Structure formats: structure tokens, C-alpha cells
Amino acid sequence: MTKITREEVKKVAYLARLELNEHEINNHAEQLEKIMEYIKQLEKIDTYDVPCTTRAIEVVNVFRKDEKKNSDCTEELLDLGPSREDKYFKVPKIINE
């Protein structure tokens, strides 16, 4: 694997519209090189029989039974609004006819 060059970092920074100073260019080149070395190590691991996963810990939905509940709080809810008319919220007119 080739070394990440300063020119490659500059090119990627340019394409990403990032302004990097000389220190940042050197720093990113070193960090990217370390990341590539780590990937090289991971590629050596045999994962032939390892099943694919999307999460490190399996997530399971907890379901509850849907139950119909009667609720008669219409008046209380309508009273919370700024204005009402019969069983509806009254709002300012926003469309001209």
C-alpha cells in the first residue's frame, strides 16, 4: 500500500472545499496513513464464517397489545387553544378568496 501524500490530502481538501494550513495537511496525511495501516491489519483477519451484522448488539422491539381506550378530554384540549368555535380550534384566515 502506498503512503498517503501531502498532494493527495491537498486534492481531497480542495474537492471538499476545505482550507487546510501546512500543519493540518501534514497532520491529516499522518492520520490517514495510520488509518490505512489499521485497515491493512483488519484485512488479514479471516471472516469467512462470520455472519453479517448491522449492529454490535442486537436490538429487539418490545411490543404491547393495542388496546382501545375511551378518552373524553375534547373540552380540555380545546380550552388549551387561543380561540375555538364549537368543537374546533379557530385560527386566523390565511388564504384570500
Results as ranks from 00 to 15, higher is better:
residue 75 E to P: 00
residue 70 N to H: 07
residue 96 N to L: 14
residue 6 R to H: 03
residue 86 D to T: 04
residue 92 P to N: 08
residue 52 C to K: 10
residue 31 Q to T: 11
residue 27 N to A: 15
residue 48 Y to H: 07
residue 61 N to W: 02
residue 43 E to P: 02
residue 65 K to A: 09
residue 84 R to M: 13
residue 81 G to C: 15
residue 26 N to K: 08
residue 60 V to K: 15
residue 70 N to T: 11
residue 4 I to Y: 00
residue 33 E to T: 09
residue 34 K to D: 05
residue 80 L to D: 00
residue 54 T to E: 12
residue 86 D to H: 10
residue 53 T to N: 09
residue 46 D to Q: 04
residue 27 N to R: 14
residue 74 T to M: 15
residue 88 Y to W: 13
residue 5 T to R: 00
residue 56 A to N: 10
residue 59 V to C: 01
residue 21 N to V: 05
residue 21 N to P: 08
residue 1 M to F: 01
residue 15 L to D: 11
residue 36 M to D: 01
residue 69 K to N: 03
residue 6 R to F: 06
residue 44 K to I: 06
residue 42 L to M: 12
residue 26 N to D: 14
residue 71 S to N: 09
residue 58 E to H: 06
residue 42 L to Y: 08
residue 84 R to W: 02
residue 49 D to C: 04
residue 5 T to H: 08
residue 12 V to Y: 08
residue 15 L to Y: 08
residue 74 T to S: 14
residue 82 P to G: 05
residue 69 K to S: 05
residue 84 R to N: 03
residue 75 E to C: 03
residue 39 I to Q: 07
residue 53 T to D: 01
residue 89 F to Q: 09
residue 41 Q to R: 14
residue 12 V to R: 12
residue 78 L to Q: 04
residue 87 K to T: 08
residue 81 G to Q: 06
residue 9 V to G: 03
residue 66 D to K: 10
residue 4 I to M: 07
residue 30 E to I: 07
residue 21 N to R: 02
residue 53 T to K: 11
residue 19 E to A: 08
residue 45 I to W: 02
residue 8 E to A: 13
residue 57 I to Y: 12
residue 89 F to N: 06
residue 68 K to G: 02
residue 82 P to R: 07
residue 10 K to T: 05
residue 6 R to A: 05
residue 95 I to R: 04
residue 72 D to C: 12
residue 89 F to W: 14
residue 78 L to V: 08
residue 27 N to K: 12
residue 61 N to M: 09
residue 62 V to W: 01
residue 49 D to L: 13
residue 13 A to L: 07
residue 66 D to Y: 09
residue 18 L to W: 03
residue 37 E to H: 08
residue 57 I to A: 07
residue 29 A to N: 01
residue 83 S to Q: 13
residue 72 D to N: 15
residue 63 F to Y: 15
residue 46 D to Y: 06
residue 14 Y to V: 07
residue 74 T to L: 15
residue 78 L to A: 03
residue 51 P to F: 09
residue 48 Y to C: 02
residue 55 R to C: 14
residue 69 K to T: 11
residue 66 D to E: 13
residue 19 E to T: 06
residue 8 E to K: 03
residue 74 T to W: 10
residue 38 Y to T: 03
residue 38 Y to G: 02
residue 47 T to G: 06
residue 75 E to K: 15
residue 49 D to K: 12
residue 83 S to D: 13
residue 14 Y to Q: 14
residue 20 L to Q: 03
residue 7 E to I: 05
residue 45 I to Y: 06
residue 58 E to Q: 13
residue 94 I to P: 02
residue 76 E to W: 04
residue 23 H to P: 02
residue 59 V to D: 02
residue 19 E to W: 00
residue 66 D to S: 08
residue 44 K to L: 14
residue 4 I to H: 00
residue 63 F to I: 04
residue 93 K to A: 04
residue 26 N to V: 05
residue 32 L to Q: 01
residue 83 S to H: 11
residue 34 K to R: 13
residue 63 F to T: 07
residue 45 I to K: 12
residue 60 V to S: 12
residue 80 L to K: 11
residue 32 L to R: 06
residue 67 E to R: 12
residue 33 E to K: 00
residue 85 E to K: 14
residue 57 I to K: 11
residue 6 R to I: 10
residue 81 G to N: 07
residue 52 C to H: 01
residue 25 I to G: 01
residue 7 E to V: 05
residue 3 K to G: 01
residue 82 P to I: 04
residue 21 N to E: 09
residue 40 K to A: 15
residue 64 R to W: 01
residue 64 R to G: 12
residue 66 D to V: 11
residue 31 Q to P: 00
residue 92 P to L: 11
residue 88 Y to I: 07
residue 58 E to C: 04
residue 39 I to M: 04
residue 88 Y to H: 12
residue 20 L to F: 07
